[in-house]
Design a protein around this nucleic acid. Structure first.
Lengths: 217, 217, 217, 217
DNA sequence: CATGAATGAGCATTCATTCAT
DNA sequence: GATGAATGAATGCTCATTCAT
């Protein structure tokens, strides 16, 4: 029906194939990055997970770095709106933090489960690899969002850059440990991280005695 | 007279040489790891910083990983007693945390300054390289020590493993940011990290209004 | 109305397009050969200078060599009549040689200036690229013509093949050096080459002394 | 007898092997350059003609260009003294030219015969390849020497640079044609080139008639 | 015919590792 | 034990060529 000129719509199968190949490379790269880490993976590793030829890689990406970027971009595009929703729905800083951590830990869990499915079992036991494009992207997003929130909130933090850094650090490490516990408890990790970030370790302590804790000065 | 057959005396000079060679390799590796990171360094890079021949490397180590381990061991051996002193002298959990952070940030700063001296100026601007044997070792030590402290203290933490993880995460990230601020302020970082870990972000907040924190609902 | 099926009209536009494509490829090839030399140019280099697709190249030529041949043929066809005119108008062997050299050096100069315009400035400083189809063709033409002239002239040369070869050799080298001197002096080169070929180096020598040439005794 | 310290004489076999390998690479390169030309030869082509491994090439040379240089250097070292002798023994410019041409044509013939022996039969039929390291070197040597001679001779040439260029051009082309005639006649080529360069084509002409050549006025 | 993506052989180069000396 | 040359697998990348559309 639609009379397409030769240069018009890149015709059916071709377009589909091109997009599919690109996705195939991305999927393969995602898998390999997660399995053996960015530095260790070679371009050949990536295309080997594919039914494409070596040279084909270069029709889509110029380097390993570029694939990395592309994957990160995808994650960014998926995660950013989610984070915006979190921010919009939060009625307090606490709520925002809590929701953000929950979003992150959920993402991490899903990510990890996918990796395990794709043949990286031992990695899962050790903890997640953070040199994964998705993780970089997510961290960056959270960092940016958190700094924005810190800046616009009426709470003037002593050092919002440090606080953001700390929030990220907590997410990273708690996240790794969460994964080691099967099944991964997103709510528990979220609650722990949120409380710690806002109220500190003391708020998490339960004192064995009435005595107000010797460590508490 | 002085013409000794190859199988002659085995002690004295030889022993010293053997130890010296091992140390030379370790020193070279340390430098290169700090300069360009673990993944990027090749064995050739290491022996090139040495006056030894390529094959000699294999008389001492079987792989890059093994050198990494060896360096980490050295750091462990140097850092562990220091940490023990910290623990012994601390009269409270707060003091322990504070001293441990201080030790870590000091070490990090020194490490970084050495790296800059050895020709990795740009790295310092970006943040510290954590894929250094020393850093891995230090983290592990602190982690172990912290869990030990958490276990033996009369404060029964809700989840000491998570708390330790968080403490490490905070150290990591705050450390990176500390290095970006020249000159690196070890005391500031220590104070920030300690307060956050123990009392939470709220303790670090200064409210613009009399209103007792909107975030506290 | 204007929606013609692919198998529609075959003449007019199509024919022109076919010829145009062929010409486009030839023009692109000419430029690239002149810019980076025959060996260095790839088919991709050629089609890149064109608005055609990679595969289209093979509808017109089977290889780089074939394009080379085609360009050489064009030059041959353009240069041959010119040379015939030269031959017809020359009233003596000297005149013929002189005119032929002039034609060659002029062509070389034009060729070189075009190459410089097309982005090969450094090449011009080093000397002309002789691995250009045009140059090969011109040399061949001159060679053939010269042998013909030598054969049909009443001057029976000792060895007309060698003489032709020498004439070419002189043209080649003098040509290169002519280009290095800016601006390229076609007349000077022509005069020098002609005199040398006909009367020898002695005719070009000026003796510093009255003494009739020490080298001639 | 000679008690060599470990670092003294690079011991027997090793030294021989190292030199032998270098020579093997050079020999292989020489052959391949002669057979298919500099541009067309790949490093793999070179080592393939050798019983060495691919990587070994890089223990001796950093690139194809470097091998080229090395071969050219060898030729230079062999040819330069020969040229000096020629210059010293020549009692006139004519003699010098003659002897230099003879040296060149001899070298060329030897070179060509070797190439034929080494499996480049068709090349020999076509003519010698001039993009051979040896040829470049020889040409350069002759060029330098000739310019020196032209400068120091009491014959002040109109344009010694052009004359040198022409002498080279003649050598090149006459040389190629000489090779096509089997057996290659070094003396004939030498006589022809010398006469042409010094006295011009007219001196080589034999007029069929008493008539002093119609072309001569 | 034109298109341009896919192909896979081929290339330069690096590197861990071996081993004769 | 030390040496350092040899090895050859592996890598990133290019390119001529094919072929489905």
């Amino acid at each position: 029906m639609a009379i397409a000129t030769k240069t018009g719509v890149t015709s059916g199968k071709r377009a589909r194939t091109k997009a599919a190949n690109r996705q195939a490379i991305l999927a393969a790269a995602r898998q390999v990055f997660a399995r053996i880490g960015f530095d260790a993976t070679t371009i050949r590793d990536i295309i080997r997970e594919t039914d494409l030829a070596a040279g084909t890689f270069y029709n889509y990406f110029r380097s390993k770095e570029e694939v990395f970027e592309a994957i990160a971009d995808q994650s960014t595009r998926r995660f950013r709106p989610l984070l915006q929703t979190v921010r919009e729905q939060a009625t307090s800083f606490e709520e925002y933090i809590s929701a953000a951590y929950r979003a992150y830990f959920s993402f991490l869990k899903a990510q990890n489960e996918e990796a395990v499915r794709d043949g990286a079992p031992h990695m899962a036991l050790i903890g997640v690899r953070v040199d994964t494009p998705e993780m970089h992207a997510i961290f960056d997003e959270i960092r940016i969002d958190l700094e924005e929130v810190a800046r616009t909130t009426n709470i003037s933090l002593e050092d919002s850059e440090f606080l953001t850094a700390a929030a990220i650090g907590i997410a990273r490490e708690i996240g790794d440990h969460m994964l080691k516990r099967r099944p991964a408890d997103v709510e528990g990790a979220t609650r722990f991280a949120t409380t710690l970030l806002l109220d500190g370790g003391k708020a998490l302590a339960t004192y064995g005695e009435k005595d107000p804790a010797p460590s508490a000065h």
